[in-house]
Structure formats: structure tokens, C-alpha cells
Design a protein around this nucleic acid. Structure first.
Length: 596
RNA sequence: GCCGCCUUAGCUCAGCUAGUUAGAGCAGCGCAUUCGUAAUGCGAAGAUCCUCAGUGCAAAUCUGAGAGGCGGCUCCA
């Protein structure tokens, strides 16, 4: 049952459609639904030829949005109500003659035997299942705003023609709209691309290439702290660390099944010639799994060796389409917190559960609350085509995954027909500050690829069996995870992750010697510290340090020199009084250890 | 990749419908100042106006192509 707000937004989609038809006669409407913060309409817009008769088509651009918006308000005044009526497919097709999009929709409705309804408001009639405002006066002309223009493929398929999508925000009142616009402005301030520049975390270079991030010293601190955390966690969980090359021969990806299916997402092959002129084709690795499989295959394995958990911060390269790149969230070099767990079917459930627990442990550390677990399963109709033809294993593993999820009381969404070809998977979905959705972690079951590489272990009865593999990356990639963390913390990282943990600030040159001694003591205690002794006022130095979001400032004036102390200023909290170095060091150590 | 938009100093931005030597704030540099919890003052300097081609007497400004970025679509860790 749609809410009144959805009715309002959907009504505005009608109004937008009507207005575009009015301003650009001959345009063809496709679909215009309500969305989270408003509405959109996908339209094949017919633009006029230029007035000088040259015939050059004038495109619709975002400067036209305010014109469309104004006209929407005028047309709204002429509307009295939404009148619906049921019609036959043929009648409906007559109304939308020449509009192949509506025709396609009408055909689908009649095939499914659903009733076809038209709704009319003013002089505008649209194919629509209903759901509008009861009273036109419920539409506040000041509570909507066209926001942006985008291309969108008909039915979301890139093989189809591209339509023009016009998005709008819509709320019940002007105040709510204003509040929403303000919220968007605020969200932009924590955009990781903006903060990444301001806090000097990462950069891109035209010489290096799009989607290939360069970690600056501050960002590298975060990368290395995360690796430290992952290594410690995985060590305790019984993982073994491995390291593998960034390239491999073509045959490996053919054997794994990634080629040719995955070729579009891989950097193009490199053809190498050896001394004798013999050619060999190599690829930059786009995934770590086959490399790890070769480590499994490096020696005979017994059931006693399992579960074997191989972990690596593996760097991989994927040729994502240029338009898909997005700051750190979508890049072409991925440093993945990867591991593969080789286990017996009997071990699978407990291994899977342990991985799941590891996810939750991480989420707790990072205070990650707003996420959705997406459980992707196979479609039994597509066994043997899109999915490996092993119904028993699909059922068994999917049931086990479902049980683990249910037992751990994690809310999840089950999505059919989204699994990998080799098994079901769980993705953890989060949202960037500007509202884009991303998978930040993945946990996949694989009962297919090990067999393709002939991976086996000797079971207790002496027979050779194929292990099940769990692919897991609870911290996703450094790139995306840190992109997410930047936004999550709005750049104000907890102490253990902060690139600079303490700034020692002198008031004047008189405190130089004691300040240096303090810095030395902190460095000796593994604290990342900077000395801020610039020839500036105290206020200026504090401001600069606050803007860099440094968690602790140690202010050193004559009084502190005299008493051999520092005056502590904590980020966002303010002045905390003076303390001896030993006291404050103990507190910092505690805060770092607890990852508070 | 596709649709639309954007690209001026290290950063953030001015620069109207083309008209001499492209402006500002911050950062950086120099000098003065030596300061008690979010911007001390003064000075000098800093720009192939993204690149290439074209149209003009004249191009940061107009046109085309390319590169990079942004909002989406598709895709995805």
C-alpha cells in the first residue's frame, strides 16, 4: 500500500510528463515512478530544430529545468483531479499510438491478464495503475523542485535506446523540501572526495590514470592501520598469510572460468615474447582466487589440513568503465582484504559462521550501524546456464547460509538470481554520503571453481574429494572501505586511525626545547605526532589543527614548561586541563588499544 | 561505455553577450610580531585560462575533437 507521500510524488511525475509533452510536442513518455525523495520520468524527448532552420537538434540541458519547473506550476493550476478508467488493450494502444514504450507496457499487462487503466488530469492522460493525490490541492507548488537530468536506458538495459530522465525532489511542504536540500548540502561536506583532498588522504594523477588512486602519507597511515587490524584478526582466527603476483598467464583465467566471461572487466592482455620468440599471454589479475588455488594445489592436501585459510591483502585491477568510476568507491586498482577458506562440506557451516562473526566484530569496531546484508541466491530455472548445475549443493549451501544469518539475528534481504555462478553469496550494502549504494564486504560460497582446477584433498577414507571454498572480504577493499570510513567519521577518525594523533603546539619560541622533548617522548611511545611551532598565533595554530581534525592538541606554554606538563585540548571536546606526559600517554595508549 | 554538465594560481572561486598587461581569499615564501585555546600585520611572488585544431582584426570567452572530472544509467568490492 503506497503512502500519501508516494501518491503525491507519483502525481508530480504525471505533471512532469504532461509538461514535457506540452513544451516538447512529439516526445514519448516511458515510465514515471515515485522514488525515495521525489520522482522521475523517463522520456524520449523530441527537441525542436534550431530557429535558424539549420536543423541542428537543440538538446535538453539542465538549464531548461527551471523552465520546465515553471511550466509545471502553470499546468498544475489547470488541473482539477485524477480521473481513472479501465480500458481494453486496443483502446489503450490507440491513446498511445506511436509510443513504442507505452505499447510494450500495454502488451505486457494484457499478456499477464492485468487490467489496464488510464488516468486523466487536465488534458493529460497517462497509462497508470493509479495512486495519486485525492485532491490536487494537496500538491504544494513550492514543495517540489526538479533536481537533475540524466540518461537512462529503457528498461535498464544498455542495449536499449537511452531516454532522458528528469529527476525531481518532492515533499508535502516547502519546509520539508528546504530541509531536504539542506541535508544534501550537509552530506556533500562529508563527501570522501572533498575530505580526501582537504585532509590530504589520497589523490589521482592524469599521468597515472583514472581510477588509480595514489595514497598520500596521511591516507597510507589509515591503509596500514587497517591492515594491522586485519592481520591481527585473521591471525587469531587461524588464517595463514600468503603473497601472490599481480599477473598470471591466460590459461589460469581460462581454467578458472573468468575468461572469456570476465574479459570486459579485465585490463587487456599483455603478450610477452621470450628469448626464443615464443609468445605467452599474461593478464593483470582481476581477482585473487585462482592464485590462492595454486597455493592450495602446491602440495598434496589431507582432510587433516582443512580448513585451510589463506589470506592476503591482494592488489587486483579491474577495467571498470570510465563512467562508473567514483572517487575511492569505484576504482580500477583494488586492494582487497581477501581470503579463501578451503573446507569440507561438514566444516562449511562453522567456517561460514566464523566468517560472519568476524564481519560483526569489524562492524562493532567501526560503529557501523546502517547497513543491509544481501543474501544472493540462484534461480533454479537457470541451472546449467547462469549457474553451476548442482541442485543439491545449491540447496545445501543456501540453507546453511540462511541458517547462519537467522541464528545470528542479522536482518537480511534475500535476492533470487543474484548469486555468483559458483555459489550463493552475502554482500553488505552501505550508502555513500550522497546516497549511492555500495557493497562494502562480500562473503561467497564456491563449490565450482575448485573442481575446475582439480583441487582435491584426501579424505579419511582414502578417497580424493573437492573442497568447498569460501571467498570472503569483510573489509572489502582499502579503496572503498576507507572511502566509506572517511564519510562515516566525516574525516574525524578515531584516535587509532588518525593520520596525526597529536599536535604539540607551542605558544611562542620560548617553549621550543620542552615541546621537542614532548614530541620525542610521544614518538618513542609510537604516537603519530607533529610539532606545530610555526610563527603564528596560538589561535591560528589551534584552528589549523582542528581543521585537520587532529584528535589531541598538546598546548605548551611557559606554565607547562615550568611544570613539565602539557595542556590537553581534545577534538570537539575542548580544553581538558594539564597533565603529565606519563598520565596522558597512558590514556592515549588505552584509547588506541580499545579502538574507541 | 551511454545521456547531460563542468574544467581559470597548490586549494576555493570572480572574470556579462570575444576587445589592451586574467582578479580575489586561503595556502606557500619573506619581514615584523613571541602571542594562553578556531584566522596578527605588512610585502613580494605565484596562471601553456585542461589539450589540440578551427572561425574572427582579436579567443579564457565562439565551434569541433580529445583528456580528466561531476550528476545519473548500466555495472560492481
Amino acid at each position: 500500500m503506497a503512502s500519501p507521500l508516494e501518491h503525491l510524488r507519483h502525481s508530480l511525475a504525471h505533471l512532469l510528463g504532461a509538461t514535457v509533452l506540452d513544451l516538447y510536442p512529439g516526445s514519448k513518455l516511458a515510465i514515471g515512478p515515485a522514488i525515495d525523495d521525489g520522482f522521475y520520468y523517463d522520456i524520449d524527448i523530441m527537441t525542436q530544430s534550431s530557429p535558424d532552420g539549420s536543423g541542428a537538434a537543440k538538446k535538453v540541458s539542465d538549464t531548461d529545468l527551471s523552465k520546465i519547473e515553471d511550466r509545471m506550476r502553470e499546468i498544475l493550476k489547470t488541473w482539477k483531479s485524477f480521473e481513472g478508467k479501465e480500458v481494453s488493450a486496443n483502446e489503450a494502444k490507440k491513446v498511445f499510438a506511436g509510443n513504442q514504450y507505452k505499447e510494450e507496457l500495454i502488451n505486457e499487462l494484457s499478456e499477464k491478464g492485468e487490467k489496464i487503466t488510464l488516468y486523466t488530469s487536465g488534458t493529460f492522460t497517462d497509462l497508470c495503475r493509479g495512486g495519486h493525490v485525492e485532491n490536487i490541492k494537496d500538491i504544494d507548488p513550492q514543495a517540489f523542485k526538479l533536481s537533475r537530468l540524466a540518461g537512462a536506458y529503457w528498461r535498464g538495459d544498455e542495449k536499449n535506446p537511452q531516454l532522458t530522465r528528469i529527476y525531481g525532489y518532492a515533499f508535502e511542504t516547502k519546509d520539508e523540501l528546504q530541509k531536504h536540500l539542506l541535508m544534501i548540502e550537509e552530506a556533500k561536506k562529508r563527501d570522501h572526495r572533498k575530505l580526501g583532498k582537504e585532509l590530504k588522504l589520497f589523490t589521482f594523477s592524469d599521468y597515472v590514470g583514472p581510477g588509480l588512486p595514489l595514497w598520500l602519507p596521511n591516507g597510507t597511515v589509515i591503509v596500514e592501520e587497517l591492515e594491522k587490524l586485519a592481520k591481527q584478526t585473521e591471525l587469531e582466527a587461524g588464517y595463514l598469510r600468503v603473497r601472490t603476483p599481480h599477473i598470471a598467464k591466460e590459461i589460469m583465467y581460462k581454467t578458472s572460468g573468468h575468461l572469456p566471461y570476465y574479459a570486459d572487466s579485465m585490463f587487456p592482455p599483455m603478450i610477452m615474447k621470450d628469448e626464443d620468440g615464443k609468445e605467452e599471454t599474461y593478464y593483470l589479475k582481476a581477482m585473487n582466487c585462482p592464485h590462492h588455488h595454486q597455493i592450495f594445489a602446491a602440495e598434496p592436501r589431507s582432510y587433516r589440513d582443512l580448513p585451510l585459510r589463506l589470506a592476503e591483502y591482494g592488489t587486483q585491477y579491474r577495467y571498470e568503465k570510465s563512467g562508473e568510476l567514483f572517487g575511492l568507491m569505484r576504482v580500477r586498482m583494488l586492494s582487497m582484504n581477501d581470503a579463501h577458506i578451503y573446507c569440507t562440506p561438514e566444516q562449511f557451516a562453522s567456517e561460514f559462521r566464523a566468517v560472519n562473526d568476524m564481519y560483526l566484530k569489524y562492524f562493532k569496531i567501526f560503529g557501523l550501524g546502517k547497513y543491509v546484508m544481501r543474501f544472493s541466491t540462484h534461480d533454479p530455472q537457470k541451472l546449467g546456464q547462469k549457474y553451476l548445475d548442482n541442485p543439491e549443493l545449491w540447496k545445501k549451501t543456501e540453507d546453511m547460509v540462511r541458517t547462519v544469518l537467522t541464528e545470528s539475528k542479522i536482518p537480511y534481504q534475500e535476492v533470487v538470481d543474484e548469486a555468483a555462478f559458483y555459489g550463493p553469496k552475502i554482500d553488505v550494502q552501505i550508502w555513500s554520503s550522497i546516497g549511492r549504494e555500495f557493497s562494502i564486504a562480500t562473503n561467497q560460497v564456491d563449490f565450482g571453481v575448485p573442481a575446475r582446477f582439480g583441487l582435491t584433498y584426501t579424505d579419511s577414507d582414502g578417497t580424493e574429494k573437492t573442497p568447498i571454498v569460501i571467498h570472503r572480504a569483510p573489509l572489502g577493499t582499502h579503496e572503498r572501505f576507507i572511502g566509506f570510513l572517511i564519510e562515516h567519521y566525516a574525516g574525524a577518525f578515531p584516535l587509532w586511525l588518525s593520520p596525526v594523533q597529536v599536535a604539540v603546539i607551542t605558544i611562542s619560541e620560548n617553549q621550543q626545547a620542552w615541546a621537542e622533548a614532548v614530541v620525542h617522548k610521544l614518538k618513542h611511545a609510537d604516537i603519530r605526532v607533529e610539532l606545530h611551532n610555526q610563527n603564528e598565533t596560538l589561535g591560528k595554530k589551534i584552528r589549523n589543527a582542528e581543521m585537520q581534525k587532529i584528535p589531541y592538541l598538546f598546548i605548551v606554554g611557559d606554565k607547562e614548561v615550568e611544570a613539565k606538563t602539557v595542556a590537553i585540548r581534545k577534538r570537539t571536546t575542548g580544553d581538558m586541563g594539564t597533565m603529565s606526559i606519563d598520565t596522558v600517554l597512558a590514556q592515549l595508549a588505552e584509547e588506541i588499544r580499545e579502538k574507541k
